[in-house]
Computed example of a mutant assay.
Amino acid sequence: MLKLILNRVKVLIPMLILISILSFGLLELAPGDPADAYINPLMSAQDIENIRVNMGLDKPVYIRYLSWLKNTLSGNLGISYINHMPVTEQIMEKMGNTFILMGTSLIFSILVAIPLGIFLAVNKNSITSKISSIFNYIGVSIPSFWIGMILISIFSVKFNIFPSGGMHTIGNDSFGDLVKHLVLPVITLGLYNTAIFTNYVEASVSEQLKKQYVVTARAKGLSEKIILFKHVLKNSLTSLVTILGMSIQKLVTGAFVTEVVFSWPGMGRLMIDSIFSRDYTIIMAITMLSALFLILGNLVADILYLLIDPKIKSSKGGF
């Protein structure tokens, strides 16, 4: 396992550097720059150039990239071009909110997917199973932003059951109020992963139910509940752990979209606002953090996979 972690770390650094070069280059190719936020039609060409010089935008792109890379490696993510606040402070302020949304959504997906997947595997031809399968396909096919708008239209605008946006009602910072604001964003963000997880659990449980050890257990007189939850489910978890790592990417990108739809004060909302204002320092910081989360998420999935199924470790020479 230690060898696996070391190998991933070796790949991590050059991969992040490559991502940073591509991201910096794409920002350079995009029309406009952060100086546009300070320019008005009455300014002379010299005034505009002075703004660019003061912001360091007059230097060649490779000089600005190397300067950014040096500061980032030293733990300094820079200062916002727009509000002149440290980028680290702004991200740390929003990161916790994003983790709340992502974590709650992931827990919601797992808690729904495992029992639903088991039910679909055991009751393949029932009407309820067919209806659930239809909802799974809908969850995979429909974009999250569209689902979010539909939920807002029904549960916020028409029936006024849940808030349409934000994290708290003004003047109410209670946990209950937070839960009310979480319901619609969590469903929006979690629906895709719930559908994917359900399909994997169903397929894995169905495959395990055909194995010889299940036939043997039934011959010994074990009840279906014991066979299903003590043996089949345990052997089916490996496929779920694998897809968990793969789902991190969708979870991160989905969280950004969901935060915009529901005005959730997280990193996604900060990222979108920074893109519109061309705040390069914040865009680069969030891009690199997102890439780091994706890589670490896959590493955690690999480690959990080894812990759940030690046979994989031995078959590959202990990694």
Rank of each mutant, 00 (worst) to 15 (best):
L29W: 10
V61Y: 07
I51N: 04
D36S: 15
K59W: 01
L18Y: 12
A37W: 11
P14N: 11
Y38K: 03
A35T: 07
P14C: 08
G25R: 04
R52A: 02
P31A: 04
N40Q: 13
P34W: 00
I17K: 02
I48P: 00
I13Q: 06
F24L: 00
G25I: 08
L27D: 02
L27R: 01
R52F: 01
Q46I: 11
L16M: 08
P14R: 09
E49R: 11
Y65G: 07
G56D: 12
R52L: 02
D33S: 03
I39T: 01
L16W: 07
D58V: 04
S67W: 06
A45W: 10
V11K: 15
D47Q: 15
Y62I: 14
D47T: 13
S44K: 12
I48H: 03
V53M: 11
S67C: 09
W68N: 00
M15S: 15
A37K: 12
L27F: 02
I39W: 00
V53N: 14
S44P: 01
G56V: 05
M15H: 13
P14K: 02
L66W: 14
I17F: 12
A30V: 04
P60N: 03
L18Q: 08
L42R: 15
N54P: 05
L16F: 06
D58M: 03
Y38D: 04
G32N: 06
L18K: 11
R52N: 08
L66S: 10
Y65V: 00
I39P: 00
F24Y: 01
S20E: 02
A37T: 12
L42F: 15
M15I: 15
I19W: 08
V61F: 09
S23Q: 14
F24S: 00
I13T: 09
L22R: 09
L57F: 05
Q46S: 14
L18H: 12
A45T: 13
L26F: 09
P41C: 09
N40C: 14
L29R: 07
G56T: 08
Y38N: 10
L16C: 04
D58G: 05
L66P: 01
E49C: 04
Y62P: 09
L18C: 13
N54D: 13
D58I: 02
L12Y: 13
I63S: 14
K59Y: 06
I19H: 04
E28S: 14
P41T: 07
L57V: 00
D36E: 15
Y65P: 02
M55V: 01
I17C: 11
G32Y: 06
L16R: 06
R52W: 04
F24I: 00
Y62E: 10
L22W: 07
L66T: 12
S67Q: 12
R52M: 06
K59E: 10
K59M: 07
V11T: 15
G25N: 06
L69S: 12
M55H: 02
L27W: 01
Y65M: 05
F24K: 01
P41E: 06
A45L: 13
L16S: 08
S23H: 10
M43I: 06
L16K: 00
L22M: 15
S44C: 13
M15G: 14
Y38F: 10
L26W: 04
I39M: 01
D33A: 05
W68R: 05
Q46N: 14
Q46C: 08
E28Y: 11
V11E: 15
I51M: 02
Q46T: 15
E49K: 13
A35H: 06
L69F: 10
F24G: 02
L29H: 08
S67N: 14
D58N: 12
A45K: 13
